[in-house]
Simulated assay, not measured.
Amino acid sequence: MDSFGIYLHIPYCKAKCRYCDFYSAPGARGVPQPYVDALLRELAKNDRRPDTLYFGGGTPALLSPAQAESLILAANPLPGAEITLEANPDTVTRETLHGFRAAGVTRISFGVQSADDTQLRRLGRTHTAAGAAEALRMAREAGFPEICGDIMLALPHYSNAEFDATLELLRQGGCTHISAYLLKIEPGTAFAKFPPDGLPDPDQAADFYLYAVQQLEKAGYRQYEISNFAKPGHEGRHNLLYWNCRDYWGVGPAAHSCLGNVRRFWPDDVQGFIDGSATEQEEGRCNGEDFLLMQLRLNKGLDLDEYAQWGGRFTKLQMDFLRHCVASGYAEFNGNRLRLTPAGMVVQNAILEALI
């Protein structure tokens, strides 16, 4: 049976981070039950059992364990399914973590971002480094087999020392998986309106990324995607569905899906989702271009035989460009598989522009 994943969008947040452009809604008091009921209404329409289930947001840890359990039961995942729940360190307690674990969550993912409290305040994060360490400790105590942490790179006034401290916090916290990604100033965010001072230039940001890749490898976290690193055997199965162009169904406002190579999305409308007036829209078909974009994010790279099955092929001009990338240290190519090196991933957008 082909792999299938379900993504449940929980848009509620206690506060909006200054860099965040994701669709969200105020949720200091938790997730309203009518929203959970709307998710249950949509899940009842599905008869395909997922082998991954992902609670993303927003801040899914604002769900109560009972709400999470009801959604897991409704999704009816296969035995051994990977069930991920994103959390902010200050939105969990010992009781809720034990409750989420008892409900069936197998993978908890914390948005730690930095071990520097000044930086966290600058970003608009509501937790502290000590709070993050305590959340990781409680997650270990609750018995989660998979504990994940996020690191943001190239932040204002950034240094390798800040990265080292954050990596050590996550490593000591028992993280099996780490996501490390560069800060990007997105339109419409607080940072776009009021840019912070001390932002690294593009060359400095690239150096921070390459340093992070190197240090994560030394710490035993193997890179398997442009921004994702894991202990061997602990790669995120759900996100691999996206990057390998497998079927996934997103439910909730701003959620996206790809089923049978057809992309769909829900409008950014919480109330419309709750009352049923906002319905899922078709966006278009996935094609060889999409496959190329996704596969070159992965450390394993692009298999040209698989690419051909999607209708893709490189022209002589593109092949000449790829040979140039190899000679420059940006890619490795054995005639059938093309993969980007860490240096190539830094300039991935430029490479993709030349190939599409």
Results as ranks from 00 to 15, higher is better:
A165N: 07
S227P: 06
L169H: 07
A165T: 09
Y209R: 05
D203Y: 00
Y158I: 12
G198Q: 09
F110V: 13
G131T: 11
I178C: 10
N160A: 13
G188R: 13
I226Q: 12
G188V: 12
L169F: 01
D197P: 07
E146W: 01
R122Q: 13
L120N: 14
A135C: 09
H177Y: 02
E225L: 00
A133N: 08
E186M: 07
M138V: 09
I151K: 12
R137Y: 05
P145A: 04
M152R: 10
T189E: 15
S227E: 10
S109M: 05
A192P: 10
D150M: 01
V213Q: 09
G198N: 12
D116W: 03
L169K: 10
G220L: 08
A192Q: 05
R140I: 04
S159G: 15
Y181Q: 08
T166L: 11
A190D: 08
T106H: 02
M138E: 15
T128M: 04
G174T: 10
Y158L: 14
Y158Q: 14
P187F: 12
V105H: 02
L167H: 00
D164P: 12
K193M: 07
L167V: 03
P156A: 09
I147D: 08
Q204E: 06
R140S: 11
K184R: 09
Q119G: 07
K184T: 14
G124R: 11
G174A: 15
E217C: 02
P195K: 09
F144N: 13
R125H: 07
H177E: 09
Q113R: 15
A133Y: 03
L199F: 01
E186R: 05
R121K: 10
A103C: 15
K184F: 00
F110M: 15
L170A: 13
E186D: 14
G124F: 10
H177T: 12
Q119V: 07
G149Y: 02
M138K: 14
E186H: 09
E225R: 02
V105K: 06
T176G: 15
P202Y: 11
G124T: 11
A165P: 06
I147C: 04
D164F: 00
T176V: 02
L216E: 14
Y211S: 04
E217M: 04
L136S: 02
A142W: 06
G220N: 13
T126A: 12
A102K: 14
Y209T: 07
L120G: 02
C148D: 09
G104C: 07
T118C: 11
H177F: 02
